[in-house]
Write a protein that binds this DNA or RNA. Structure first.
Lengths: 117, 117
DNA sequence: TTGACAGATCGATAAATGTCGATATATTGG
DNA sequence: CCAATATATCGACATTTATCGATCTGTCAA
């Protein structure tokens, strides 16, 4: 039924580290996902949002992160572009939450079990 | 019995993304781990080693990775420093394998389950 | 000891990235 | 429509990083 065209992976955009084969594009996409979390500011942003039980307003991030508004906005954009965060506009405020796929995607890509030792 | 001094986390060096609290140092350490995998060449190296059933000689990486010997050596060093790979000298050859802790560490840090939605 | 080879280190360079102040855009309230 | 506020974008700058050629270090065989 399904075309199974490049659908042999749980995630089409980026293959797990333990995949049997890994094309150049897949390696690039996988690195891109890790790159999104390869900055302490973005790690803290994701952590703050992950531990909140509601979407978080950007205005509530500047102070705890300790960086300027443009810089935090820059990091938020990177996280959204990477598919890790979801942006929701409420009036003049922007709220961010964890994208549900991101959780599975990250866990899948980081999976090395079975390939070890 | 245990001192439980900074031992409340599964990994002492870098806290998971979903941790209740995250110090500056922990965020830095966590980002450092992701940074090690934030490059397509290093993703491919880890993948090649993860899918091999034996430690891999550095000399068998230059050609598949498609980069110069110094560059591959540079990436290998980064992966070893990050605690992801183990280096083993056999005569004049260097063999690399996945460090067993790395598997768990990566999975733990990347864990966002329960913190989602 | 010497020659050959594997891998690491060095130095240089180009590209990518984080940061901020200034400014632009968009939304709301009056 | 206008003023105020939240966020995004722009331009600039400093830092980091990936890459390679050349060289150094260490190991083995003869």
């Amino acid at each position: 039924m399904n075309e199974r065209v490049s659908q042999s992976r749980p995630v089409s955009c980026c293959a797990p580290l333990g995949a049997e084969t890994l094309s150049d594009d897949e390696a690039e996409a996988t690195a891109e996902l890790f790159k999104a979390l390869a900055d302490p500011a973005r790690v803290r942003i994701v952590n703050l949002i992950a531990t909140a039980d509601e979407p978080v307003c950007a205005c509530n991030l500047y102070e705890p992160i300790g960086l300027s508004q443009p810089t935090v906005s820059h990091h938020l954009k990177k996280l959204v572009d990477a598919g890790l965060l979801e942006r929701e506009q409420r009036g003049k405020w922007a709220y961010f939450s964890l994208k549900s796929d991101a959780v599975d995607k990250l866990a899948a890509v980081a999976d090395l079990k079975g390939a070890c030792c």
